[in-house]
Amino acid sequence: MTATMAIFGKELRDAVRSRWLVAFALTFALVALALAVVQEQGSVGAQGFNRTTASLINLCLLLVPLLALILGASAIAGERDRGTLGTLLSQPLSSADLLIGKYLGLTVAVWAAVVLGFGAAGLLVALVSPVTDFGHYLLFVVLSGALASAMLSIGMLISVLSEGRSKALAIAVLTWFALVLFYNLVAIGFALSVASSGEMLLVSTLLNPVETVRILAVLSLEPDLHVLGPLGAYLYVEFGPALSAVILGVALLAWAGVPLTAAAAIFRKQDA
């Protein structure tokens, strides 16, 4: 536990020193604020947070997975590149201690960046718009953090499987493209043409943490079938909003846990 905490502390300190996370938090805050201001100018009535939150969904689904995948993919592969992996693993800690310490440190760092970015924007939005949907806004911050946790877990698995940092980053970016940009088309096409069934639609949804969070966010905001998309609409119609949220929440938890567990099992069997 001591060693895990030492690794955790170092990751957190590195993240604080890192310009990436500061830039990420600032970008989020500025974009969130800009969206809020633009929508406030065109809005009728007091609905600042709800509109801002809805507009931020797509931005969040693009940026958070990219940041988390890159950070996760660099975690072990970067140490391997620098030659410091051997130095670390020659100390009294297990490979799981190292992996978990890094994961926790990065998770807290990304959550902090998300909370800071959205928090700062939320405060400013509250100044120009009466607060009516603050709960939705907070929920969306939590969902963003949860998405980051899941994508960090996938990133750590990529990192353990990659020989070096550049290879890990390339795979991370490809994964991001696949999950964020191409997944819906491929999944829906596959589910409808090759194995046309409701179960396949459900599986297709759960197999992508980005889609899982998107549907959860839409369900919490405005469960409109058009906005939900075919995968979300199937869930909504089949299970209702509450059960759908539980299923998606459990899937998200699994995404945070399963890749990390697989990474730990593989890492334990590797030579440093």
Binding site: A3, R82, T84, G86, T87, S90, P92, S94, D97
Partner: peptide, 16 residues
């Protein structure tokens, strides 16, 4: 972990 607690290791090219 227990074994390494008893070992002080110096690599050929220590990397930090």
């Amino acid at each position: 972990r227990g074994a390494r607690r008893r070992i002080g290791y110096l690599a050929q090219n220590p990397a930090f």
